[in-house]
Design a protein around this nucleic acid. Sequence first.
DNA 1: CTTGACTCTGTACTTGGGTACAGGGTTTAC
DNA 2: GTAAACCCTGTACCCAAGTACAGAGTCAAG
Lengths: 132, 132
Amino acid sequence: MALRIGQLAEQAQVKVETVRFYERRGLITEPERTPAGYRQFPVETVRRIRFIKRAQDLGFSLSEITELLELRAHSPRACGAVERKARDKIVLVETKIRELESIKTALVTLATDCAKRAPSGECPILEALETD
Amino acid sequence: MALRIGQLAEQAQVKVETVRFYERRGLITEPERTPAGYRQFPVETVRRIRFIKRAQDLGFSLSEITELLELRAHSPRACGAVERKARDKIVLVETKIRELESIKTALVTLATDCAKRAPSGECPILEALETD
DNA sequence: CTTGACTCTGTACTTGGGTACAGGGTTTAC
DNA sequence: GTAAACCCTGTACCCAAGTACAGAGTCAAG
């Protein structure tokens, strides 16, 4: 039933070093050891690492994921707090999207001006970056 | 006419350490020195640092900015190459925006489910993160 | 009984863009 | 003439999320 670190890593789709790193960071609890010192992970750890990876894909940092895991540990009905964290994250994501949209607009303007230039002219991108 | 590092930093709106950092990175050329070893920057350096800062705001990394500056140094008509870099960057920005949009959709779904839950139920966000 | 695959600890390195000292020297204003 | 404010170099540190490596021990197959 118990998994060695290599088996866990394979099943959870991460590297062995990542598992040890997560253990150091406290994201997974310290496992039992064999007499020789080999880690013996319970199978649930696979789910826990998958949880971490999915939360990362949603833009949560490892510190935020630690909080999420603690919420779950302290109460199975911590839903309100979790929802609040999700909504906070939505606001951040929206802000980031807006910033990127305006970056994109600026880049498109510059590239378009550039394409329209007189064949012998100066580069409007470099000029645009140089002036206020 | 020449500026000391503190004056340059003030006019370019960066910190003194940042100027020295840019010099180490080769983003600005090494300035003359006074007999005592103080840097004497030509006034154009203010424009150069502003260029760097604006390009950063547009999402270019310092290595990319180095390339842009080199293009300008090698030819005042490097416009085609610059436009190509800008268009590459647009593609990257668009990809990032799409990724964030799908993250946002996932988060909104989770938070909405959470708000709709039965008062005594489990947290759908945590459940969703735990299952495939 | 040895070879190869696995595991252990501990430490250092990576990338990016700086920031923060420590321990000096210089210049300027009063 | 002295104190504040500036400048110098060199080094180390910060964040995040790992990755890499050295040098050692363990385990299973043939």
